[in-house]
Amino acid sequence: MPLANTSTAVPVVVDEGKCIADKGCTVCVDVCPLDVLRISELTGKAYMKFDECWYCMPCEADCPTGAVTVNIPYLLK
């Protein structure tokens, strides 16, 4: 069966103005137990790549600059 791309709203938001991933920080990506965050090759900032979040919050708690906000995934909000 061929594959399609379906869009989905992801719960984690990164404030690019605050994120210092371009200075070598990878904290949120490191701590996420579901491994759903990445550093964008385009912007050099962190973002949520996969909609597979446990809304558990280590990414937000450990971010040194307060750039991450975890929202409740829409389906269970």
């Binding site: 210092i20 200075k23 070598g24 920080c25 904290v27 040194p64």
Partner: peptide, 11 residues
């Protein structure tokens, strides 16, 4: 020179 780099170094 960059404070953010110093910050990452501390971590």
């Amino acid at each position: 020179a960059d404070a953010s780099v110093r910050r990452v170094a501390v971590m």
